[in-house]
Nucleic acid binder design. Structure first.
Lengths: 336, 336
DNA sequence: TTGAAAGCGCTAACAT
DNA sequence: ATGTTAGCGCTTTCAA
């Protein structure tokens, strides 16, 4: 491998001079600089960033940990993070926890040993607490994405789950629905709790009694489980509308409904949190509370880098990105 | 930061002994091992992988470079790569070139300076040649994904674009179509060339003259450009079916068709290469030649690690993953 | 303007 | 079974 010493020798200077040329530090005569640069090109020299990191005590690497790479919400978020990181001169080390605390922990260990400069962390849920505490114990700056974790104070970029849920339920009520089911994520996850709260609040404000029989808590990823849904539909007074707490659950719900011959929206209205990606453009069908996922990533990196570089950054900044109600055709006026 | 020296001191041993405990090398008495381990835990010690990489001359990092993180094909591929890398003890450094040679080059430089052990490289197109040559010049093992690049001999995992295209066209012909348009990617990309060839071959075998007026070459990502499509539809004898060379182009085509009030499949049949993701489960609509994208990634990592670790690996292994024709409802018998 | 020396955290090779 | 030495490629400090 070509090192600065190879360059130094060929250019008849010291390694130190080469280093200065590379980093544009110190005073170097124009002549020397040119000569060194020439040799670097001739020899195809590429600095070894491991050696650099070792002495500098910083890597210029940021880590992004998400929970589900197949979900367009996170894909788009990743894109925002990547663009932003690139712009700011950082590399992105990428991890996918699959909503699994163990996998998440493995990634935390990897992150720690890589000595990344900071972490953009989308927690799997409340159980992420000890993983985040570990990062903190090692003084790695991090910004939390999407889901708050009780017990951790930090910068966080999140959506407004409560408000988004209320908008969705309000909308359904405005269509005449009163038996509205909630197919929720696990209560172990802050956004699921907030969506549940928003759902409950909206109902209360509309003077509709909350019926716990109409509420299912599963996981954001268990969109294929149809048993619980069956129970919902076999109720003496089944719902006329379903609010799915995320996009995947909505897809699962609709799939299961169709299997039973229940048409959406004719026989059942369905709305959800989070949009689907481009392919839904084929059939702009789902009525959703869409979140600005790209912004989650871009903004997250920005906060993170500010915290890494900035001296006087306020503690625990909370950025809340609003969701947008996009009315399409998966919900309709009741009884029409 | 806690180093092996801190551990060594607390445990009353030398740094070397600590190193041996960490790596399970050399002979260490059970007693010493226990004591050292205890101290490591007490001090929350995490090895510095940069220092390790520097002396070992290997990083245990693999790089994955894809061209479009928003495309489910690559997302799924990334997931396969990630799972596989994790299983084999490698970290994954992730890059997205956006089908852009310049961005791709930036990533190559980053990869080089990180001294990754190997690269899984999905090229943007033929112009990736010099980027791949650069990797080769620096002796970084790589495996190419999806698109062959003329001038580069290497391990490669690709689909069977020619055969997939033929299947799709044959299917359309079997439905009675004879004026079949091709909305293709750029001829700068091997898969686009092969899909074009497959298209042409299928037509010829069916005794249908190829009409270049029915062929459009754009880019795999330009799914929103409607001008060229308009030209196609305004032809004296417009097509009755369209073969889109990838999923995004199909979405664009269908969107544009609908804007003009042309229904799919009633007025126009549409098929494409590559499936959409889960969200298409909502409306299993598109008839596609689906590729096993997860396998692309998983298999790619496997070949890559074999090449990195293995001594006697044959040169330039070519793995071809077949596509599967999935017939849904975006194409129908002509005139029915 | 340039360079020598020391050290970042770790491990291979070689003692003891 | 354990320790000493040297060095991976780079930069900081200080001296020339």
């Amino acid at each position: 491998m070509v090192t600065i010493y190879d360059i130094a020798q060929k250019a008849n200077v010291s390694a130190m001079t080469v280093s200065k040329v590379i980093n544009n530090t110190g005073r170097i005569s124009e002549q020397t600089r040119k000569r060194v640069k020439k040799v670097m090109e001739d020899l195809n020299y590429i600095p070894n960033s491991n050696a650099r990191s070792l002495v500098l005590q910083q890597t210029q690497i940021l880590s992004l940990l998400i929970t589900d790479i197949t979900n367009p919400f996170y894909t788009s978020l990743a894109r925002g993070a990547e663009d932003s990181a690139k712009k700011l001169g950082y590399r992105l080390l990428f991890g996918n926890s699959d909503e699994d605390y163990i996998k998440e922990q493995d990634y935390v260990d990897m992150i720690l040993s890589t000595r990344v400069d900071g972490v953009l962390f989308a927690p799997a849920g409340d159980g992420s607490l000890k993983n985040l505490e570990k990062l903190r114990a090692h003084n790695i700056p991090f910004v939390i994405l999407d889901r708050a974790v009780p017990g951790i104070e930090s910068d966080i970029v999140s959506g407004d789950s409560r408000q988004g849920a209320r908008n969705l339920v309000d909308y359904l009520v405005s269509l005449g629905h009163r038996r509205i089911a909630l197919v929720n994520g696990s209560l172990d996850v802050s956004t699921a709790r907030l969506r549940y709260e928003g759902y409950a609040e909206a109902l209360q404000l509309q003077g509709i009694a909350l019926d716990e029989d109409l509420v299912i808590h599963k996981s954001y990823r268990e969109y294929k489980d149809e048993d619980q849904l069956a129970r919902l539909l076999d109720l003496p007074a089944p719902p006329t509308a379903i609010f799915a707490a995320n996009n995947f659950l909505a897809v699962g719900v609709i799939g299961a409904l169709r299997k039973r011959g229940i048409r959406v929206p004719e026989d059942m209205s369905v709305v959800c949190f989070d949009d689907l990606d481009l392919s839904s453009a084929l059939d702009p069908f789902l009525t959703v509370a869409a979140q600005p996922s790209y912004q989650f990533g871009a903004m997250g990196i920005q906060l993170l880098v500010e915290r890494i570089q900035g001296s006087a950054v306020p503690e625990a900044r909370k950025v809340v990105l609003p969701s947008e109600l996009i009315i399409r055709s998966s919900a309709k006026t009741i009884g029409e």
